[in-house]
Design a protein around this nucleic acid. Structure first.
Lengths: 232, 232
DNA sequence: CAGAATTATTCAATTGACTAAATTAATCGA
DNA sequence: TCGATTAATTTAGTCAATTGAATAATTCTG
């Protein structure tokens, strides 16, 4: 947890290997079929592992499900933490000049965007996007895990940037709505995959598509911020 | 299709009643659990109908699934068609002055927004949002039904408005990306329900939340359009 | 009285969980 | 370094419950 490099160097034990394999297979299966429809037999087979090992390692299907989310949270946290730290540092040293503040906010937003792109470009992204979307519609215990550790922190950070850029109180509902809107501009491309595939004739998100999105994102934000949209 | 009032007046036959009941129950069940996890027994029970009637009326589970989407398409189409017609009419009579064109485009976008709000405010919205999200991730035959009849037309219309507002070619990729971004600003509130519930402390979308979204939407679009964001 | 609609029942297949037995890895004394 | 003891891990097989679909008999409708 503290030193990832060390953890990675030590070879995985036999048990850890099957745990990893089960988590990967479960991520895909739960995302694709949902909790009920995903069968433990299929997951075990996809992981190249005996079915009974699910019960042994995770206590059962439900435990495996939660394990998948803990795994997601752990990985996202690892990716996010250093970026968040850096953003906060630069945020504390924000200039007074409104124009400079907007430029800073815009720049930091693009930095945050970059921090997530490779996570999204990964082949496994489709898997947890499906999972997260499911939990968004019908939140369970797993959603609380996601929200408390990932979403709430991400939104708090992004909200501060939005507040800085448009001169709003970061705690206000207006600022929060605005923050979600900005997030929505990006997420739509990874949520509405079927539509992007046909409307934009795009495949799964790759470096070129992400670059195209970022470019428009930057333009839209620049114009949105440049005139300091009125509060309400 | 042509005269909804007439269709509604004629009382439903016994078979039509069970079909309707099955479709409503199936919409909820498929949306909530996904195709595989939703059981025909549970659907039939929720519809207050014998399980064997699914096979009788829809040929089987798969037929019922497609029937649900045909039903959604039919209802959305009925809601959308008159609005689209009106938008197209006013689009053909667009003024020459760039500023007026932007105002027109913005106004029409807000009109389109209004046309969909009551559809989204309905209690059943959560059901088909879940269904549509699922098909977006893993498109099946049902997605083609949705896209060809609903999404493609909606995007084409909205794309023309965006083109008008920012002075882009409606067929360009840039314009399409921009169009999806604008759509994403709104959809995020209905897609990320778990997050809006906690971040904004909102319940399911009601008149007040929709009003709040619309207000910010108008402000953002106004600032986005007012300076004619550069093409690329 | 036809034909549409509905019912109760049965079918093989698959589900998640559990258990006892078998196998592997780790530890320890010499 | 070696072999043996112990704990961790994996396996195959079983269980009751549930699945979608099909059937034949029955009821309702026009």
């Amino acid at each position: 947890m503290i030193n990832i490099a060390l953890v990675n160097t030590k070879p995985l034990s036999r048990g850890d290997q099957t745990r990893e394999a089960l988590l990967a297979a479960a991520l895909d299966a739960f995302g694709r079929s949902g909790f009920d429809a995903a069968s433990t037999r299929a997951i075990a087979e996809a992981a190249g592992v005996n079915q009974a090992l699910i019960g042994y390692h995770f206590g059962g299907k439900q435990g495996l499900y939660l394990g998948v989310f803990e795994h997601i949270v752990y990985r996202m946290q690892g990716r996010m933490a250093p970026v968040a730290e850096e953003v906060l540092r630069r945020l504390d040293a924000a200039p007074e000049d409104p124009v400079q503040r907007r430029d800073l906010a815009l720049g930091l937003m693009l930095d945050m965007f970059d921090a997530y792109t490779d996570l999204i470009s990964e082949a496994s992204s489709a898997g947890w996007v499906r999972l997260v979307l499911r939990e968004q519609q019908d939140p369970t215990e797993a959603f609380a895990l996601l929200y408390d550790n990932i979403f709430s922190r991400l939104l708090a950070l992004l909200g501060r940037l939005v507040a800085l850029a448009v001169g709003l109180d970061a705690a206000s509902e207006t600022c929060r709505i605005r923050t979600l809107m900005i997030l929505g501009q990006l997420l739509i491309f990874f949520i509405a995959r079927g539509t992007t595939a046909r409307y934009l004739e795009w495949g799964p998100p790759g470096p070129d598509t992400i670059a195209a999105i970022k470019q428009q994102f930057r333009l839209v934000l620049a114009s949105q911020f440049s005139q300091g949209v009125a509060a309400s």
